Computed example of a mutant assay.
Amino acid sequence: MQITFDLLQTTAIGSAVVFLGIWLRRRVLLLERYCLPGPVVAGLLASLLFLLLRTAFGVQITWNLQMKDLFMNLFFTCVGFGASARLLRMGGARVLAGIAVSICGLVVLQNIVGIAIAVPMGMHPLNGMMCSSVATAGGVGTAAAFGPVFEGYGAPDSGVIGVAAGTFGMIFASLIGGPVARGIIRKQKLRPTDAALSEEERRQVSLSNSRLVGSWCLIFLIGGLGSYLSFALQKIPMIEMPYFIGCIFSGVIFRNLMEAAHLPFDLPEIESISDVSLDIFLALALMSIDLTRLLDSALVMVVILAAQIILIVLWAHFCHRFLFGGDYNGAVMVAGLIGTGLGAGSNAVANERAVMQQFGPSQVAWIVFPAWSVIVVDIFNPLFVSLTAPLLARWG
C-alpha cells in the first residue's frame, strides 16, 4: 500500500510532531532531566511508528520534504546572522580559538579512528572516512554531496553508507549531547553566571506582528542572496560545499554590514524565526528517516559509528577542561560540540537550548558557539576531506 503526502500534508505532520515534542517535554520529566530535545524524541517516535507500518503492514510512505530543506536553510541563515563580530568578540580570543581547535581536532581524530577501523575490517578507506567526519561533523547533506565523489574514486555504495551514517549521527547527537553536559554540570556543581530574564524583561521583548513580518522578509532575502554564494562556492574545484554554507555566509555578511551601517533589525523576532525553523526542520528530518537503512547497515559501519560516539564523549570532556575553560559556559558548549560533531549545527542549538532550559542561561555558549562552530566545521571539514580523499583513493 502506497501513501503519498504532499507539501502541506508533510509539513502538517511535522508540525504535529513538534506539538508532540512540546507535550512530551512537559509530561515526561526524564526528557527534561536529561536535556533531551522534544522535536528529536518525538521525531524518532514518529519514525519508529512509520517503520512499524512499513514492516508489519507493508505501508510505503512518500514524503514531500521541500519544506525541510527550506527550514534548514532559513535556520542556518539565522545562525549566520547571529555571527556578529561584536558579539563574537564577547567570547574572547581564547574561547574562539578553543572552539576552533575543538572542531578541527575532532574532525581529524574522527577520520583517523574511522579509517583505522575500516581498513582492517575490509572496508574501503574512503567509506571509513564517510562514516567519520563526512557524515558526522558534516551531516547528511555533506555525505550526499561527497557520495558520488567517493564512488568516482572507487569506494562502493559510498552515498548510501554516508546517508545511513549521517542519520545515525543525527539521532545520537541529541540523545547523548544533553546528558553528557548534564553529567559534567552535576558532577562539578557548575552554576550559570548569566542572569535569566525577569518577567518584566520578558514582557519588554514581546514580539510584534509588524516586526515579525519584516524579520521573516529579511531572513528570506538574506537566504535567497546566500543561494548565489552557494552556487559560487560549488564552483571551487575539488571542494564540496553544502548549499546551506552560502546561507550562513550571507547571514554573517549582512549582520555585520547592517551593524556597521547602523541599520535596524529585530533580534527577538529573528530568534523566534530561528526556533520555529529549527523545530520544524528537526521534526521533518527525523520523522522521515528510513530506519531500514540502519537495520541493513554492515557490521563494520556500526563498529565505526560506535567508536565515533566513544571518541566524541572523551573529546568533549577533554575540551571542557582544557579548551572551554572548565566552567558552566564550557559545559553548555560541550552539548553543542557533540551536536555539531555527530549531527549538525541544528543539533548543537537544540542540545544547548535543552541544557539551558534546565540549568540556566549561557550567553557565551548560546551566542558564540553555534555560529562560530558551524563556520569552522563547514570550512575545515570539506577542505580536509577534499584534500585527503585523493590520497586515500590511491591507498584503497
Score class of each variant (00 low, 15 high):
1 M>K: 09
5 F>L: 09
6 D>F: 11
15 S>N: 10
15 S>A: 15
16 A>R: 08
19 F>Q: 15
19 F>H: 13
25 R>N: 15
26 R>A: 11
29 L>E: 14
29 L>R: 13
29 L>I: 13
30 L>G: 11
32 E>Y: 14
39 P>A: 07
40 V>L: 14
40 V>P: 15
47 S>D: 12
48 L>Y: 15
48 L>C: 13
48 L>K: 05
53 L>D: 12
55 T>G: 09
58 G>H: 07
63 W>M: 01
63 W>T: 05
64 N>W: 10
70 L>G: 09
71 F>R: 07
77 T>R: 07
77 T>F: 03
77 T>C: 10
78 C>G: 04
82 G>N: 03
85 A>W: 13
87 L>D: 07
89 R>V: 03
91 G>D: 01
92 G>M: 01
92 G>D: 01
98 G>A: 03
99 I>R: 01
101 V>P: 06
101 V>L: 13
102 S>E: 03
103 I>P: 00
107 V>H: 02
112 I>N: 05
113 V>L: 10
115 I>W: 09
121 M>W: 11
128 G>T: 04
128 G>M: 04
130 M>G: 06
131 C>E: 09
133 S>A: 13
144 A>F: 00
146 F>G: 05
147 G>E: 04
148 P>Q: 11
148 P>S: 09
154 G>S: 04
155 A>Q: 04
156 P>C: 03
161 I>A: 06
162 G>Q: 04
170 M>E: 03
176 I>L: 06
180 V>E: 01
181 A>C: 07
182 R>P: 10
183 G>C: 04
184 I>S: 09
184 I>Y: 01
185 I>A: 10
186 R>M: 07
198 S>G: 10
198 S>D: 05
201 E>C: 01
201 E>P: 03
202 R>V: 11
206 S>G: 12
208 S>H: 07
210 S>F: 06
215 S>N: 05
217 C>D: 05
225 L>R: 04
226 G>P: 02
227 S>P: 00
233 L>Q: 02
236 I>P: 00
240 E>A: 11
241 M>G: 00
243 Y>F: 10
245 I>V: 15
248 I>F: 00
249 F>I: 15
252 V>L: 06
266 D>W: 01
270 I>L: 07
273 I>L: 11
273 I>N: 08
276 V>F: 09
278 L>D: 06
280 I>T: 02
283 A>W: 14
283 A>V: 09
284 L>Q: 10
287 M>V: 02
288 S>K: 03
289 I>M: 15
290 D>M: 01
291 L>V: 12
292 T>L: 09
296 D>H: 13
296 D>N: 14
296 D>R: 13
296 D>C: 11
299 L>Q: 12
304 I>S: 04
309 I>C: 04
314 L>E: 07
314 L>Q: 04
320 H>G: 08
321 R>A: 12
322 F>I: 12
325 G>V: 08
326 G>Q: 02
328 Y>F: 14
329 N>H: 06
331 A>R: 00
336 G>R: 00
345 G>K: 03
346 S>N: 12
347 N>I: 11
350 A>D: 06
351 N>H: 02
358 Q>T: 15
360 G>L: 01
363 Q>F: 08
363 Q>T: 14
366 W>D: 14
368 V>K: 05
376 V>L: 06
376 V>A: 11
377 V>C: 03
378 D>I: 13
380 F>V: 07
382 P>F: 02
386 S>F: 04
393 A>S: 12
394 R>C: 09
394 R>M: 10
